[in-house]
Design a protein around this nucleic acid. Structure first.
Lengths: 151, 151
DNA sequence: ATTGCTGCAAAACGTTTGCACCTAT
DNA sequence: ATAGGTGCAAACGTTTTGCAGCAAT
């Protein structure tokens, strides 16, 4: 199995609640971890459909939420009112810069950003759960933008 | 007029494009600046309806975007796939902590956060336009949460 | 046997659009 | 006069839901 470690995490998460272990859930997990980059629930559903999966849209939507709960996926929103997901599996945590000229989403890792949520939450007497930090910016010239590789 | 300074800003923004000065647009501006806290476009539409305004939903949606463009409003998203707006008028810029226990949205001002978007964008060779920083946290005990004031 | 999960289609939700009429310029 | 704005209702795209049948426990 390609994602045996992830399957183990997912299985023990499912067992810890009143959730059942079903083949459909693992089919969604595999497809989600296989997906390269950020995806909407429906994007994943289409990909699975094209691979002749018989898993329904409803199951895809529900399973993605479970995968977020057990932290195999992150939930993102880049200001378009669409929920996007991204695999956390074997990846380091990061944040995003969204280019308003060429549409690219650039990932970056910044230690100062990572420390702030904890610091601020403590000051306000909360316990951090997660955070989201997005920068909206412009590359000014698509032609010379080093992150742009074709439309 | 209650928001004469804002009206001036909005007017000169409208004139700078090929936009017309209409009473409907100023009606939306007044209602938006009057709104206490964060609101969705539809929330504002309902409030206006209840005050017997005859401005249409379509006009409300379109005008809010114009008000964001001229920076009288900020656009926010707290992870629910709903666009929310907030007045910038006579207010200092800030970020948000969303409590996952009691639902409160706590505003905070942190100088380190404010500096990061510029710093990171420069490093990546972009020009910042805006950013969003949300912390999702828990107050653990609604009863003792100093930000909680009733359901 | 029970309770939760599935697929399907319909509904819900926030938002955008097409269009005929109207109005600011 | 004309370009742009308006209200209305219909359409849109994403997400959720109700339900009958199915499957994991």
């Amino acid at each position: 199995m390609k994602y045996d470690k992830a399957a183990e995490i997912f299985t023990s998460f499912l067992k810890s609640g009143k959730n059942r272990i079903t083949p459909e859930r693992f089919e969604v997990m595999d497809a989600a971890l296989d997906y390269d980059g950020h995806f909407g629930a429906d994007d994943l559903y289409i990909v699975m459909k094209n691979l002749n999966s018989r898993v329904s849209r409803a199951t895809v939507y529900k399973t993605l939420e479970l995968l977020v709960q057990c932290e195999l996926l992150s939930k993102r929103n880049f200001g378009e009112n669409i929920t996007r997901y991204e695999s956390n599996y074997k990846r380091q945590s990061h944040d995003h810069l969204i280019c308003m000229d060429c549409g690219r989403i650039v990932e970056f890792v910044n230690q100062k950003v990572k420390k702030l949520p904890e610091e601020i939450s403590q000051e306000l007497e909360f316990e951090v759960s997660s955070y989201s930090f997005n920068i909206f910016a412009r590359c000014k010239n698509i032609k010379t933008c080093k992150y742009y590789h074709g439309k």
